[in-house]
Simulated scan of single mutants.
Amino acid sequence: MQCSYFDAGVCRSCTLMGVPYPDQILDKEIRLREMLATVGTASAAEDGTATSAPAPIDWLPAITSPESGYRNKAKMVVGGSVQHPTIGILDHKQRGVDLRACGICTPGIRRALPVLADFIAFAGLIPYDVPKRRGELKFVLVTESPSGALMVRFVLRSEGQLPTLRKHLGVLQEALPNATVITANLLPEHKAVTEGDREIVLTESDTLPMPLGRTLLHLRPQSFFQTNSTVAEQLYGQVAEWVDVANPRSLWDLYCGVGGFALHSARAGRTVLGIETSREAVASATMSARERGLPQVRFIAADATEYAVHAKPDRVPELVIVNPPRRGIGADLAAWLDTSTVQTVVYSSCNPTTLVRDLEAMPSWRVTSARMLDIFPQTDHVEVVTLVERRGA
């Protein structure tokens, strides 16, 4: 992939830009295999003697992505002036750098960004000046569904320009008719985050349908969703395949987000419970389960670790799916899994370093199968999904 922004030196976020894509995949696979090959080698038997080397992992072919146009969510900083707003990033002096033609964004997002820039100027929304801590509009967040529908979120410092945004909403909807969800998010604090806690929905719809294969998911404004729809569909398919082979009567989907793993793994006679701290995500997942007529699939808003470690023994499932944030599942949940009656774990990781740490804290388990996922081409970011089974099983 070639990028004029990278070539000009105005954006170096994609650190592997220019590296042939096959080489990117090979390097990431080698790194993952080396990291996971060490899991279990430092453990010791009960009598203190060293254990034998771990059994080889069955590595499945990598799940690759289109090199460009793959990112379904753009988190764009708004800079510049009212008359000439920039949508992109900030440079080293905290000035706006316009990236409205960013090649890793989906085509629908690339078409939308110039329209949004024109709307910002037309409506007179004042870009936030980071050094001076003045202005109102901090970010524009745009998500595209595989169907082409858009969710557009304006991150404002206060309600000061909310009336202006409401007044001109019709103009934006006419210029961007596929923007089915438009919101204002309030972020009054001056800190390095992209959104605040309060969301004000400006459109009739507050949910973006996200069809992936035969499963329709729903995304509300503050819910997490995989940023690469092409790879996400294959990831959910791989996990569902492993779950079907294990054929558990019950499973938990911890850190379930909008329910992608749970809904793809739902089968007749199988009870499924999704746990997620975000109430917005739980509402989205519950909507999807209800629409599909899956009464055996439930979602609750709770902390995954707290729920698991305090679960009654008769509530513990046969299989657990975990898809934690970059910090991993942590020592407490890893310890609980190690001593629980759970028979199979599927661990989807966006941070191989914490994955290895968590697996080392689960000496009763071993990785039997693994698959790399290239969710972020042109970067050194790598994700992996693993099938983890009890030793000796």
Results as ranks from 00 to 15, higher is better:
L219I: 00
Q83C: 02
G48N: 04
D7C: 00
L337E: 06
L219W: 04
G40N: 04
Y255T: 12
T339N: 14
G18R: 13
P114T: 09
S147T: 03
V385N: 11
T271M: 05
D47W: 01
V245S: 08
S229G: 14
V388K: 09
R12A: 13
Y347H: 12
F224L: 09
T41M: 05
S284R: 03
A262M: 09
E389M: 06
L150A: 03
A117R: 05
Y21W: 02
G80S: 08
C11E: 02
F376E: 01
Q296Y: 04
R110Y: 06
L99W: 05
E46D: 13
A117L: 06
G259P: 10
R166S: 03
A246R: 15
D303A: 01
E291H: 10
Q222N: 12
R327A: 03
L150N: 07
V322D: 04
R12K: 11
Q83L: 04
M372L: 11
P377C: 08
P188E: 15
L165E: 14
V342P: 06
L217I: 02
A232W: 00
P295K: 13
V245Q: 13
T341E: 01
D91N: 09
R134F: 07
V356A: 12
V342M: 07
C256R: 10
V342E: 08
T215A: 03
S43Q: 09
F154K: 05
A311E: 10
S158I: 08
T353G: 04
